[in-house]
Design a protein around this nucleic acid. Sequence first.
DNA 1: AATGACCTTGACTGATTGGTCAGGCCTGCT
DNA 2: AGCAGGCCTGACCAATCAGTCAAGGTCATT
Lengths: 215, 215
Amino acid sequence: MAQAENAERQGSRAGSRDEIERAILDAAERVFAEAGFGGATMQAIADHCGLPKANLHYYFASKKQLYRRVVERIFRVWLQAADSFESSASPEVALRRYITRKMELSRAHRYGSKVWANEVMHGAPIIQDFLETTLRDWTESRARVIRRWIAEGQVRPVDPHWLLYMIWATTQHYADFAHQIETLNHGPLSDAQWDAATETVCGIILRGIGLEGGR
Amino acid sequence: MAQAENAERQGSRAGSRDEIERAILDAAERVFAEAGFGGATMQAIADHCGLPKANLHYYFASKKQLYRRVVERIFRVWLQAADSFESSASPEVALRRYITRKMELSRAHRYGSKVWANEVMHGAPIIQDFLETTLRDWTESRARVIRRWIAEGQVRPVDPHWLLYMIWATTQHYADFAHQIETLNHGPLSDAQWDAATETVCGIILRGIGLEGGR
DNA sequence: AATGACCTTGACTGATTGGTCAGGCCTGCT
DNA sequence: AGCAGGCCTGACCAATCAGTCAAGGTCATT
């Protein structure tokens, strides 16, 4: 009985339910990023994924709920990147890996980063509880790791919070302000430029806290 | 003849025309910052400065024009900060002064910074020409100064652009993401915390590019 | 081919919002 | 007092947009 294999079970036009939802979420992420929640219209989102507007409301009850789903998806990606900050590794390795991962995220998920920035700038109406729980816990746990490094004399004494904010700010800037960067750069950054920017960010921060004596 | 001293010349309710326009611009800056252009309503702006909505349209023809005036005002403040990067000073002095000034701006003009961030994130529909002229010229001129420092062996070799982006990102983060920072901090930053953050940002960046051997 | 579950969509609606306007108001001048 | 010029505002449009709905389509199962 029941639906057996559910892959490709719906054949009317496009793919499965999951695929359609993902297409809508992709379009919504982009439109929300470029216009903000208030400036985004369901019609624009519909146009971006080639669906009639009424169809969006079949998959997502309301604009607010669609937005919430977009933000939740971005949150999951953020968590994944947070894991790359391994507290068991040496400070050089842990920080370099974390910064590199965040730069990759900025490149791969420009729109997600923008939606996140918008959400926080507007007072985090949706993710406030996440800021107060998951983000705060994560931040304090990494702050403890950094303080341990400082106590062991591996890292120069700095308040870990200012350091973390610096990493977040710098890496996310490449997504949130991509338009400004690309204007100054006369076009998108090349692979080599991304690598160079990542290396420079790692270099300045690591050296700035007393690591990486050489090179 | 004519209006002689024009200070306090209108007495109906509030202050002079300039004062009213400034009150509207202040309210608009805040509302645009917190809701984005699309999410902001003229009614909300009117409420924030205690004027009836129709009165706003007496002073500003349209929402778009009001927004443009807000952005132009922010641009003027930005220019003022840009001047604090004196190319004639030593790299330590020039960069430290510039970073400090930008941190002060983030503290004093949180909403302005947010409006700017919003504008750039949405593709800079209004300030595009400014990005391509004033900002690009300024950036290239400071990049030349930094390259000179590098050639003179005063600064470690880095692409000046990545360095400037890092400064912009980090300092503006304290305005744009103020809500997130205050959530993690269990409240607004104190004077001492602002000083500490500024000192840490200066320290990491200066040390990161090979300056400030001591301390 | 009939059934039923699920998907699609054009047309519609109620609410919101940018913008308008006519008439009222206040102030300084004569 | 009377007048003129600028300022103020409640009430009112026209446009836009989120969300609804009913009719129709598609597919697997029997």
